[in-house]
Amino acid sequence: MKTWLILLCGLVLWAVHFFVAYFIGEFIGETQGPRIAVLGLTLLCLAGVAALGVLLRSMRPEDDHDRWRRSAALGTLAISFVAIFWQGFPALFVP
């Protein structure tokens, strides 16, 4: 379980961001309040990704497998960061 958490933590954060943003838009509305909520959520998730990145970098791998796992997880965190950042834009720019 620990390995999967490490590998997927960034993508899970992306999923949380996407689905919460979607639910806000679909079920709450698109007025100023929900937009600010989505932006706040975006900042929170980006901070989460950054924190996970710091945590992963501080882990000391014991063997090749651990090294591989850490480096793959950092890669998924980078993709997640870009995807969350990009996905927050509609709340800012779409009228």
Partner: peptide, 17 residues
């Protein structure tokens, strides 16, 4: 709704990465 549409548009571009 436009903002929701925007989320899907953004995700559709992101998945190409």
């Amino acid at each position: 709704p436009p903002m929701t549409t925007g989320f899907f548009s953004a995700a559709s571009m992101a998945v190409s990465v």
